[in-house]
């Protein structure tokens, strides 16, 4: 069995008395798409922020490519990127300027070609010279995805990447992600509140509830385990239990 590209071990995050993430352990294998599912406040975003080095865990460890995130942050983050519907990019810069800054930040070479490639891949030609402030929410989402793809990461964290996209673009993005996984061996940690999307995209799903993992397996295994008709019913059952 191949070694995991990411290993989170006994990850816990407390904010005062509140336990946001409670003793969570999981792995991501090379080329795997791991879905992270759970109701609001389940600890998905906190987990993702810890994996990105933005929040220091209270206890537990994160190893990426066998390196400890606590001590090898720069080397790890060079090979990781993320995108979220909820993040922003500098609004006063054009789409192209933003991509150039990201490429420089990651020390990329041949930037013009890479920017062209990613702009073409995400069908951004018509707004590549537009000021970011003037983008629609769907265009903004494509820009944050472009900045994630631009650096050619080996692991991608995607927080509801298709939430504000129309069905056509969302479908194209999902196809692109699967293609990147197939051709470049990209590993992805994926969150979404669209259950059909989760079933379609994820090789494996981790279900978080009140900071704990309550289910883990393929979508079919989880549905079978909870005796529900589909993943949406499992989600509703667990989400209502946690309120």
């Amino acid at each position: 069995m191949t070694a995991p590209v990411l290993q989170a071990t006994n990850l816990t995050k407390r904010f005062g008395e509140f336990v946001a993430v409670n003793d969570v352990s999981f792995t991501i294998r090379p080329g795997e798409i791991l879905g992270l599912l759970g109701p609001n406040g389940a600890g998905k975003t906190t987990t993702m922020h810890m994996l990105l080095g933005l929040i220091t865990p209270t206890s537990g460890s994160i190893h990426v490519f066998g390196m400890d995130l606590a001590t090898q942050r720069e080397r790890i983050l060079q090979q990781v990127n993320f995108s979220s519907t909820y993040i922003s990019m500098p609004m006063a810069l054009t789409v192209e300027e933003n991509l150039w800054v990201v490429a420089r930040l990651y020390g990329m070479t041949d930037i013009a070609r890479r920017v062209d490639d990613v702009v073409k891949k995400l069908e951004m030609e018509e707004f590549r010279r537009k000021i970011t402030r003037k983008l629609s929410s769907g265009q903004m989402t494509r820009l944050t995805l472009a900045k994630a793809f631009l650096t050619e990461p080996k692991i991608l964290f995607l927080d509801e990447p298709t939430a504000s996209l129309d069905p056509d673009i969302a479908h194209k993005i999902r196809t692109l992600l699967k293609e990147e996984r197939r051709s470049a061996g990209l590993s992805i940690l994926y969150t979404s509140h669209n259950m059909r999307e989760m079933e379609e995209m994820s090789d494996r799903i981790i279900f978080l509830q009140r900071g704990r993992i309550v289910a883990e397996g393929t979508a079919q295994e989880i549905v079978a385990r909870f005796g529900q008709a589909d993943l949406e019913d499992v989600f509703l059952k667990l989400a209502r239990e946690s309120r």
Partner: peptide
């Protein structure tokens, strides 16, 4: 402050930038 106003700190500190 420019980074704060642009809500760009997350992009920066999730990159290799120290």
């Amino acid at each position: 402050l420019e980074e704060l106003w642009a809500r760009n700190l997350m992009n920066l500190f999730a990159s290799p930038l120290t």
